[in-house]
Every structure is written in structure tokens, then in C-alpha cells.
């Protein structure tokens, strides 16, 4: 049961990831990417990381993808304005990506099967436990992440502001 759910989710995520890369229209790419993110959230649920699945959907599908969609519509991009890359470049990309993937898959298939650890606390992925650890053991990285957000916010505002001297 769980195995068939896993293989179905894997097929869905790989299929939609391929569609993201090959579809000509950037709006379609964004929509396929949202579906990929939903299937990845399903993988997180299978791997006993419930809070992570929730955050993944909220942050990616709710924030980042809306930002992408907004910018695509602001810049008025569609399939007609998409610049085409030469087929030589596509061939080179396929060779580079494909051969690296082949090497990694060959290496991975050689390793012995690893059994998942037993006696797992199934409550560990829930919000209460994660919040406790985040605010005690990982308090310093948490605060550093908030400083990073502040820096990113200031940088975004400064970059997106019109400069009256140059234009």
C-alpha cells in the first residue's frame, strides 16, 4: 500500500518536473512546478515529516510560486517571447545532465540495501517537538535566518527601486 503510494508519487513528481523543463510557456512551467511541489510534500508525509510537508506547501506553493507567477504576468512573458536555444545547446545539456545522472544511479545501485531505523518516535515530525528543538538547540541558526531575511528584504527593495540618476 505505502509502496504503491510512493511509486505513484515518484512518477508524478518526475513527470511534472520534466513538464516544467520542456514546456514552452513560462506560466505552464510555474503551474507544473506547483504540482511537483505538492507531490514532494507527499514524499515528506511518507517520510514522517509532517510539519515540513505543511511548510513546504505554504512557502513554495503559497509564496514563491505566486511571486513567480506575478512577475511572469508583469513582464508579459508567453510562449511567443520565449527565446529558443539552439539544438546543439539542448543536446549538450542532455548529454551533460544525462551522463552525470547515469554515473550517480550506477553508484547508488551498487550499495547494499539500507533498512530504515526502528523504534522511531512517530511524533517527532509534529509541530510541538520541532518547535521545541528549534527554539532551544537551534536557536542561534534560527536568529541568523531572521537576519538573512532582513538583509534579503532590504536588498530586494533597493534593487527594485527606480534609480533617478541612471534613468
Amino acid at each position: 500500500m505505502i509502496a504503491s503510494v510512493f511509486y505513484f508519487l515518484s512518477f508524478v513528481s518526475i513527470f511534472f518536473a520534466v513538464m516544467v523543463v520542456v514546456s514552452k510557456n513560462p506560466v505552464h512551467s510555474v503551474l507544473y512546478l506547483i504540482l511537483t511541489f505538492f507531490s514532494i510534500a507527499g514524499h515528506y508525509l511518507l517520510l514522517n515529516a509532517q510539519f515540513l510537508a505543511l511548510v513546504h506547501i505554504v512557502v513554495y506553493a503559497g509564496a514563491i510560486m505566486v511571486l513567480f507567477l506575478f512577475v511572469i504576468m508583469l513582464l508579459n512573458l508567453n510562449a511567443a517571447t520565449e527565446p529558443v536555444k539552439s539544438s546543439l545547446m539542448k543536446f549538450a545539456g542532455a548529454i551533460a545532465g544525462g551522463s552525470l545522472m547515469l554515473v550517480l544511479i550506477a553508484v547508488l545501485s551498487k550499495i547494499n540495501s539500507i533498512q530504515p531505523a526502528h523504534e522511531v518516535n512517530t511524533q517527532i515530525g509534529l509541530i510541538k517537538n520541532l518547535g521545541k528543538i528549534l527554539f532551544t538547540e537551534y536557536n542561534l541558526p534560527f536568529e541568523v535566518a531572521s537576519i538573512l531575511f532582513l538583509v534579503a528584504m532590504i536588498g530586494t527593495v533597493i534593487l527594485a527601486k527606480k534609480n533617478p540618476h541612471t534613468s
Binding site: 513560462p26 513582464l75 512573458l77 544525462g98 545522472m101
Partner: peptide
């Protein structure tokens, strides 16, 4: 691994900065 290299292929072959960011 498959997802990683699909993303790498997209990054190498697309000529649209938004789609490269998505990869």
C-alpha cells in the same frame, strides 16, 4: 537524483531567467 538532473538540464537549456530560477 532524477529531479536534480532534470533541474540541471533545465538550467542549462532554457534561455529565460525565470525558468532557470525554477530549475
Amino acid at each position: 537524483t532524477a529531479l536534480f538532473f532534470i533541474g540541471a538540464y533545465g538550467f542549462l537549456t532554457r534561455r529565460n531567467m525565470i525558468t532557470m530560477l525554477m530549475s
